[in-house]
């Protein structure tokens, strides 16, 4: 077992917010943006870091990458002290901030890569081979010679990710990388990231609002709420914990009366005069049992099972946490 690639212990970050009150006075309020986070990311694994806006995700990432000092607690990234060894750390990590760019706006991607390779002091043969691989896998060839300012958002993000990976960092940190991307671009990006991890063993820390990202790219989830850990474990565990239900969507051969009263299910909706009906069911029954019960009443032409919407799951988690006195538990943790 090697050391964890990210090691965060009892991390706190407080901000002082000054807001005007009345004409002259200002009130100072201290906001706990990160409030006692502890977690480790083993090398080679992938972590989805999720939470509402202002939950403390970006603040945590800033501390992990060394551009913000913790108020208290410790962070080690790639075994380094992020603030004191920021330059060394910068050679070990690749970071994409969805809202910022590390490309030069006026220049084509090709020029940005040439400069970044020099910044990372990569030998010609090493970086050109790596660039060609990234150009191929991210499909950058058609726009690598166009100035970045003329690229579409999807093209630019692909260019950003290639820039973050050019020096083959062991750890990739993505802060909302798929924000604003269309379905196809998101899908390509996910395929690419999965493949990179498989080939290079890159560890991944991902913050996102897109629950499909989490589902597809990570094996572990941390949910933060008001800077505190609300959940640490896998997706299935999260779903179990909040008791989220799956929905069975049925297309019937002939219109039927509403399928109310099937054991262990709730009728969610009836559409097209009863041709399509949707039933929610929880952990106390199985899809087979439900189907069997339904089969006694109607003939099913087609069916789909909708997995729980994670945004809903997280919302429920927040609700249950605030109901029982703000997020204390850490689920199926990995202490």
């Amino acid at each position: 077992m090697t050391d964890p690639i990210i090691d965060v212990r009892e991390l706190h970050r407080r901000f002082t917010v000054r807001s005007p009150r009345g004409r002259f006075r200002r009130t100072r309020t201290v906001v706990e943006a990160v409030d006692g986070l502890t977690f480790q990311l083993p090398e080679g694994s992938a972590l989805g870091y999720i939470g509402a806006n202002g939950a403390g995700k970006s603040t945590t990432i800033k501390m992990i990458t060394g551009i913000l000092v913790p108020s208290s607690g410790t962070v080690r990234t790639c075994g380094l002290h992020p603030i004191r060894q920021r330059k060394q750390l910068a050679r070990q990590i690749g970071v994409v901030f969805g809202q910022r760019t590390q490309l030069w706006w006026d220049l084509p991607l090709r020029e940005s890569y040439r400069t970044l390779a020099a910044i990372h002091r990569l030998p010609q043969s090493v970086w050109t081979a790596r660039r060609d691989e990234l150009v191929d896998r991210l499909d950058l060839a058609s726009f690598i010679d166009i100035p970045v300012r003329q690229l579409s958002l999807g093209q630019r993000i692909r260019g950003e990710i290639a820039a973050a990976l050019l020096h083959s960092p062991p750890l990739l940190i993505l802060d909302e990388p798929t924000i604003g991307l269309d379905v196809l671009s998101k899908e390509r990006l996910r395929v690419f990231l999965t493949e990179q991890r498989a080939h290079h063993g890159t560890s991944l820390l991902l913050t996102t609002h897109d629950m499909d990202d989490v589902q597809r790219l990570t094996e572990r989830i941390i949910v933060v709420d008001h800077g505190r850990m609300a959940y640490d474990g896998d997706l299935a565990g999260l779903v179990r914990r909040v008791g989220a239900e799956r929905v069975l969507s049925l297309d019937l051969t002939t219109p039927a009366p509403p399928l109310a009263g099937i054991p262990g299910t709730d009728l969610v909706s009836v559409e097209a005069d009863g041709l399509r009906q949707r039933l929610a069911f929880g952990d106390d029954t199985t899809a087979t049992a439900v189907l069997e019960a339904i089969g006694r009443h109607v003939e099913v032409r087609d069916l789909t099972i909708e997995e729980p919407d994670i945004e809903e799951v997280v919302r429920r988690l927040y609700l249950s946490a605030t109901g029982t006195g703000t997020g204390t538990g850490t689920g199926t943790g990995s202490e």
Binding site: T2, I5, E43, G44, C78, G79, R91, Q92, W104, L107, E111, R114, T115, A117, A118, I119, H120, R121, L122, P123, V126, H167, S168, P169, P170, H200, G201
Partner: peptide
């Protein structure tokens, strides 16, 4: 360290001068 990687540290041979020159060109 993280030896399982094709770590950039191992392949780093260019001098800081190269980074300076690259910025001038950029």
């Amino acid at each position: 360290t993280f030896p399982s990687q094709a770590a950039p540290a191992s392949g780093r041979t260019r001098s800081p001068i190269a980074a300076f020159t690259a910025h001038v060109v950029m």
